[in-house]
Amino acid sequence: MLSKLLTPLLLTSFSLTPVHASLTIAANLAVIEYTPMKIALEDFYPTPPNITIINGGVPNLFSANTTTLTDLASNAETQALRSYPSHRNLRTIYTISEVAYRLVTSSPSSLHPRLESLKGKRIGTIPATSAGYFVEALLDNAGVSPSSYTVVSGAHCLAAPCANDTLPAMLASGRVDAVALWEPTVELAARALRAANNNGTGVVFFQDEGVYREIYSLYSTAETLADPVKRGEVVRFVGALDRAVRVFEGEMERVVGRVARAVVPAVEEGLLRDVWGVHGWKGGLPADLLDVLVREDAYVARVEGRERLTRRELEALVDRSVLREVRGEDGEEEEEEER
């Protein structure tokens, strides 16, 4: 009789044990934007995390593109647009940071040049990236067509002294006339330019969030989100990430030292403080995300040599369901009201 009573009790206890899936996340460990994910795991994840962050990006979600297949990945929206035509199961589930990129160039101390002055100049960036699109969008908005300047490719830099093939070194030596990229490369380029000219030449930044902002997001696949166990872990992680992003927005001092060390290689803390404000730590999913994707796909399609995607085709790329689970059923409406 006792054994008959114990059996259902044991089964009931077993069924109530939460099931946690392991997750692997691909992120570019050399960018500041990924770091809220690391802080989320350290400070806010509800269980001992069975989650690994590796160096990579959106291509890691698809086995044909990489040897390391992951469940989640982070990248700027440009890389998502490059992958989506071949992988219609790609889903954007959470925006970690919105970054108002900057372009830096030199200026005589008595003058403040306009963007039109970059006609005929050499602009250092990394083509076919969010920075490449930023250059084109910023200059096009000023009436400067791509045919009237030259794009020169260079490498990013995280700490001075920057190597000879990096954009800061190229600007300081005069091999390019302007630099545009994600931070802290642009800030280091400005510092290198000042040092090269003994502070005799002014430095000017161009920045227009209304023309372009990087939308650095977390991505998954339709298959991962359809798996109940995997989805549960994704929702738990995004919940922790949402809390971490709020700390980045309002409590920089709590995390700035760890963030500086989390970037690979590490960023000097003073440099990180100087560029912290360039990053918008808003979280959620922007209300205008689909509009941004439609507009930017014109650039990506031309670079990739393909047809533009329609708005209807791009709609499936944005999945707000995980965010609604994290924030509640009315999470989408709240997000739109916040913006």
Rank of each mutant, 00 (worst) to 15 (best):
Leu9Ile: 12
Thr12Phe: 15
Ser15Pro: 08
Ser15Thr: 14
Ala21Trp: 04
Ser22Thr: 13
Ala26Asp: 03
Ala30Gln: 04
Val31Phe: 02
Glu33Phe: 02
Glu33Tyr: 02
Ala40Ser: 07
Phe44Thr: 06
Phe44Gly: 07
Thr47Trp: 13
Thr47Pro: 00
Ile51His: 04
Thr52Ser: 13
Thr52Gln: 13
Ile53Asn: 00
Gly56Gln: 05
Val58Glu: 00
Leu61Lys: 00
Phe62Ile: 00
Thr67Arg: 11
Thr70Cys: 09
Asp71Gly: 01
Ser74Asp: 07
Ala80His: 08
Leu81Cys: 08
His87Pro: 03
Asn89His: 09
Arg91Asp: 01
Thr92Glu: 06
Thr92Met: 00
Tyr94Thr: 02
Thr95Met: 09
Ser97Tyr: 00
Arg102Gly: 01
Thr105Ala: 01
Ser107Trp: 03
Ser109Cys: 15
Glu116Asn: 14
Ser117Tyr: 08
Gly120Asn: 06
Ile123Val: 07
Thr125Pro: 01
Pro127Cys: 10
Ala128Asp: 14
Val135Asn: 01
Val135Phe: 03
Ala137Glu: 08
Asn141Tyr: 14
Val144Ser: 04
Ser145His: 14
Ser145Met: 14
Thr150Met: 11
Val151Gly: 05
Val152Asp: 03
Ala155Phe: 09
His156Asp: 06
Ala163Cys: 09
Met170Ala: 09
Ala178Gln: 02
Ala178Glu: 02
Ala178Asp: 00
Val179Lys: 02
Val179Tyr: 01
Leu181Asn: 06
Leu181Thr: 01
Trp182Lys: 00
Pro184Glu: 05
Glu187Cys: 08
Ala190Phe: 04
Arg191Glu: 14
Ala192Gly: 07
Gly200Thr: 15
Phe205Val: 04
Asp208Ser: 11
Glu209Leu: 12
Gly210Cys: 13
Glu214Cys: 08
Tyr216Ile: 05
Thr224Asp: 05
Thr224Trp: 01
Asp227Trp: 00
Lys230Ala: 04
Val235Tyr: 02
Val238Met: 05
Val245Ile: 15
Arg246Asp: 06
Glu249Ala: 15
Gly250Asp: 07
Glu253Tyr: 07
Gly257Lys: 11
Val263Lys: 03
Ala266Pro: 12
Val267Ala: 02
Leu272Gln: 07
Asp274Phe: 11
Trp281Lys: 05
Trp281Ala: 06
Lys282Glu: 15
Ala287Glu: 09
Val294Asn: 10
Val294His: 10
Asp297His: 14
Asp297Cys: 12
Val300Lys: 06
Ala301Leu: 14
Val303Ser: 12
Glu307Ile: 07
Thr310Met: 13
Arg311Ala: 13
Arg311Trp: 14
Ala316Met: 07
Val318Leu: 03
Arg320Thr: 11
Leu323Tyr: 09
Leu323Pro: 04
Arg324Met: 15
Arg324Asn: 12
Arg327Gly: 08
Gly328Lys: 05
Glu329Arg: 11
Glu336Trp: 12
